[in-house]
């Protein structure tokens, strides 16, 4: 195979593009700029860590099933871990959002970083809501009967039926977590490619 043929291969072109945009020292940096040493920069990784606990406890709940998480002490414990890691996830994500909004973190060609964060937030809210109606208890029955009127008023009820436990559970454990994980991965990669946004006082020129 000639060199020009190798150059034209999609694997070669993709590899070169990835190497150019995201060299190893950018993907896994060993230092960060001085302005990153502030507590406000901690909430992104706090969100990411709690997402890890959410996914991990969710996998254990999926392995054992509703009878286990409703009827055993260990099941209650893992169920509570799932709930409270979600609480911390949203808490940290909101503080992260406020911090980034105050920094205007979309500056310096970081619009895609900002937008992947926004869409991740929206997908996570959907995952939270479908979690409420997937508990398989009286609480979830109550919430779903309250939610159906709102969903039906939007016209989405024909496709998204909150009274359909099977559908809600599939959204909660397959589609929305998949969306959240993929978008979070993209968000982190965008932060790695563009770097952490500098504060305003660093100068008018915004580093890319």
């Amino acid at each position: 195979m000639s060199t020009s043929e190798i150059d034209r291969q999609w694997t070669t072109r993709l590899r070169r593009r990835v190497e150019g945009k995201l060299p190893p020292e950018k993907l896994l940096p060993d230092t960060q700029p001085t302005y990153v040493s502030s507590w406000i920069y901690v909430f992104g990784i706090a969100t990411l860590s709690s997402l890890g606990v959410v996914i991990g406890t969710g996998c254990i709940l999926a392995l054992r099933g509703p009878q286990w998480w409703h009827g055993s002490a260990y099941g209650h414990f893992i169920n509570s871990m799932h709930l409270w890691s979600v609480e911390i996830f949203f808490f940290a994500m909101v503080v992260h959002l406020w911090g980034k909004f105050a920094m205007a973190a979309w500056r310096g060609g970081r619009a895609l970083t900002w937008m992947t964060g926004v869409v991740t937030f929206l997908v996570s809210i959907g995952a939270g809501f479908t979690g409420y109606v997937s508990q398989s208890n009286f609480d979830s029955q109550w919430i779903s009967t309250q939610a159906k009127d709102g969903i039906n008023a939007t016209g989405a009820g024909a496709y998204f039926n909150v009274l359909n436990l099977g559908q809600m559970l599939m959204w909660h454990i397959v589609l929305l977590p998949l969306g959240a994980i993929v978008l979070t991965g993209m968000h982190v990669l965008m932060v790695r490619i563009k770097g952490v946004v500098p504060p305003f006082e660093e100068g008018a020129e915004v580093a890319e």
């Binding site: 502030s38 507590w39 909430f43 503080v95």
Partner: peptide, 22 residues
């Protein structure tokens, strides 16, 4: 209220090792 308090504290609380890095 806790989120607002956390946000304010995160902005003003000194980060460990910041002065050493400077």
């Amino acid at each position: 209220i806790l989120m607002v308090v956390t946000f304010i504290v995160a902005l003003v609380a000194p980060f460990p090792g910041r002065s050493r890095r400077k």
